[in-house]
Simulated scan of single mutants.
Amino acid sequence: MDANYIDSYYYPRFLDSQFPSPSFPGSPGGFPGSPGGFPGSPGGLQQAPTSPPPAFIPQQQTATPFAVDPGAISLCLFRNTYIWLRNGSSFWYYPIFVGPRSVAGFRWNGRFWTIFGIDTRRIVSFTCF
């Protein structure tokens, strides 16, 4: 499975005006309570963070043998989060949406934030600030 896996049903295109807002059954224009966008995002769009993440790499927390619980990582929404993947990669992340099997947000590439989605089964551990 690709590292950029995105659960397309739960991860609508939302970051650029060229992408239309999703419509889900029973919810005209988008998610319930937030026409055309994500809950808590003004105007239905969510922008990348305007500043870089912290300049340090945190110590890895105890890794889990199973998939990361979406409920646990949802506590890191809209916060700088450091993520360790099963393949050994690690990076700063700024999650803005958590679905049943995936997380969407922005990944720091060392110079700027880029949109990034990941399957929660690929995450070994994470810590947020």
Rank of each mutant, 00 (worst) to 15 (best):
I57V: 12
W92M: 08
P52Y: 01
A63V: 08
V103W: 10
L75Y: 07
R111T: 08
N4C: 13
P70S: 07
P52W: 00
Y82T: 11
L45T: 07
W84I: 00
N87E: 05
V68S: 08
A72S: 15
F91K: 00
V98A: 04
Q59W: 01
P25C: 04
Y82G: 11
L85M: 15
G110C: 06
P28Q: 05
A3S: 10
R79M: 04
R121K: 14
F14W: 11
S125P: 03
A72Q: 09
G99D: 01
R111P: 10
F56Y: 02
M1K: 01
I83W: 02
P54S: 02
F129M: 06
I115R: 13
G99H: 11
G36Y: 05
F38Q: 03
I118T: 07
R13W: 08
F14S: 04
G33H: 01
W92I: 03
N4Q: 15
F112T: 12
L85K: 09
L15W: 13
R121D: 10
I96T: 05
G88I: 01
S51V: 13
S8R: 13
F112N: 06
P100Q: 14
F56N: 14
I123N: 10
T62R: 00
Q60F: 10
S51F: 12
Y11A: 12
T81R: 07
S102C: 09
Y11F: 14
A48D: 15
S74F: 10
Y93S: 03
G99M: 04
P20D: 12
A55S: 07
S51Y: 09
A104G: 13
F19V: 06
T64A: 15
N87V: 02
P52C: 02
W108H: 01
I83D: 07
Q60E: 01
S125M: 13
S41T: 12
P53M: 12
T81F: 02
P100V: 15
D16I: 11
L77D: 05
L15V: 14
R101M: 13
D7H: 12
F66Y: 14
S89T: 14
R79Y: 04
W84Q: 02
I6K: 05
P32W: 01
I115D: 10
R101E: 12
I123P: 02
L15F: 09
P39H: 10
Y9P: 09
G88Y: 00
Q18T: 03
A3Q: 02
W92L: 03
S89G: 00
M1D: 10
